[in-house]
Design a protein around this nucleic acid. Structure first.
Lengths: 200, 200
DNA sequence: AGGAAACTAGCACGGCTGTGCTAGTTTGGC
DNA sequence: GCCAAACTAGCACAGCCGTGCTAGTTTCCT
C-alpha cells in the first residue's frame, strides 16, 4: 500500500476535499476528520502531509488564489481592449460552477481568518492583487481613450471603483440561485468599461 | 436574585454579547457558553430566554438589521436630494465603529448560514431590503433630473449598480485598518450619485 | 541483505460543543 | 401565608475537535 506518493498532488487532492466540505456543509464542518474522510484517507495520512489544521487551510486558500490567477492569465487577447477587459473581469465573477465555488470558499475562509490568523496575509494579498488587476485594466482603457476630449478621469479612482463594482456584483451573483441569468451584471460591467474606454 | 426580568431587554443584552464575541474572537468562538460568559450569565439562564443556539443567533442577526434600518430612518432630510442620498447610503458603510462592527458581524453570520439554515431567509431579506433601498434612491435622483436631456437611464439598473458599489466599497473599507481615511470611497459614491442626479 | 526513510493507520487525551434535565431560589397573585 | 410560576444555576451526556504518539507496512538506497 504505502507507495511513494507525489506530495504536491496529494496536497491538491486534500485542498479539493477542503473545498468540497466547505461548499457542501459550510465552513463550520471543516475539520481534519471531515476532510480526511472526504479525501478517502485516514487522519494520520492527512497529518503526514499537513501536520496541523492551519497548514491545511492556508494551503487550500493559496491554491485557490493560484488557480484563479492562472485562469486569468490563460484568457486569450483579441486586441479589442474593451472586449478583452470584460473577458478578464468576468473570470473573477461567479459565473461558471468553478469560479462560483471559488468565491463561496473564499468568503468562508475570510470568515475563518479570526480563528486562523495565518489566513490574514493570504486574504490581504488576494485583495491587493485583485485591486492591482482592476487598476491596470482601468489604466489601459483610460490610456487608449486619452485626449478624446472627455473629462480627465483619475486612473486610480477608476480602478478602485471597478474593484468595488466587481466585488459587489460577485456578492449579488452568488446570492442569486446558481442557474439565474447573470446578464444584468454583465450589462453593468459593460457600461462601466465603456465609460472608461470611450469617455461617453 | 431572580427578580422579574424584562425578557426583551435580556434578549438584547445577549445579542450584544453575541456581537462582542464574534468581533473579538471570530464566529468560530460563538457558543452558548462563550456568549453566556460574555453577558455574565449562566448557560441555564441564557437558555431560559433562548432555548437553542439557533434562536440566539437568528435573533441577534435580526436585531442587527432592525438597528441598521432604524439608523437609516433617523437620518434628517435637508431637501437637497443628492446630499441626502449620500447621507443615507453612508449609514450602510462601515464608517463609524457601530456600523463597522455591524458589517463584521453580518459577514460572519452569512458564513454561518450553512450551519444555521434559519439564517438564510434572514440574510435574503436583508439583501433584498438593501437592494430596494438603493433602487429607490436611484429612482428619486433620476426622477428629479428627468428631461434634462441626458441619456435615458434605467432606474432598475442604476439601483443594482448602486447596490453593488455600496457592498463592494463596504468590503474594501472593512479591509482597511479601522482608522484609515474613507474619503476615497465617499468620493466614488459622490461621483455615482452626481451622475444619477445631473446626468453629467 | 538490511537499515533508514516514507507512508498509513489509529488510539488516547483534554477540551470544547449543544442540550436534556433537575434542583434551588425568589417573586407575584390569591 | 402559600403555591405556582419565573428565574438562576449547574450537572451529565454524547459527540466532535486538534493533536501527540506509537506501531505496522512498504519502498528505496547502499
Amino acid at each position: 500500500m504505502p507507495r511513494r506518493i507525489d506530495v504536491d498532488q496529494r496536497r491538491e487532492e486534500l485542498a479539493a476535499a477542503v473545498w468540497n466540505v466547505v461548499r457542501e456543509r459550510g465552513v463550520g464542518a471543516l475539520s481534519v476528520r471531515t476532510v480526511a474522510a472526504e479525501a478517502g484517507l485516514a487522519v494520520g495520512s492527512l497529518r503526514h502531509v499537513f501536520p496541523t489544521r492551519s497548514e491545511l487551510v492556508v494551503f487550500s486558500a493559496e491554491l485557490m488564489i493560484r488557480r484563479a490567477t492562472a485562469r486569468i492569465d490563460a484568457v486569450p487577447r483579441t486586441g479589442d481592449l474593451e472586449r478583452d477587459a470584460l473577458a478578464l473581469v468576468s473570470q473573477v465573477l461567479p459565473l461558471a460552477p468553478d469560479s462560483r465555488a471559488e468565491l463561496e470558499v473564499n468568503l468562508a475562509l475570510i470568515a475563518e481568518a479570526p480563528a486562523v490568523p495565518e489566513l490574514i496575509p493570504v486574504r490581504d494579498r488576494a485583495t491587493r492583487e485583485l485591486a492591482d488587476f482592476c487598476r491596470s485594466i482601468a489604466a489601459v482603457l483610460l490610456a487608449e481613450s486619452a485626449g478624446r476630449g472627455g473629462p480627465e478621469i483619475d486612473a486610480d479612482r477608476a480602478g478602485r471603483r471597478l474593484h468595488a463594482l466587481v466585488d459587489g456584483l460577485s456578492l449579488h451573483l452568488l446570492a442569486d440561485p446558481a442557474g439565474a441569468d447573470p446578464e444584468w451584471a454583465l450589462e453593468i460591467l459593460r457600461d462601466e468599461l465603456a465609460g472608461l474606454s470611450a469617455r461617453s
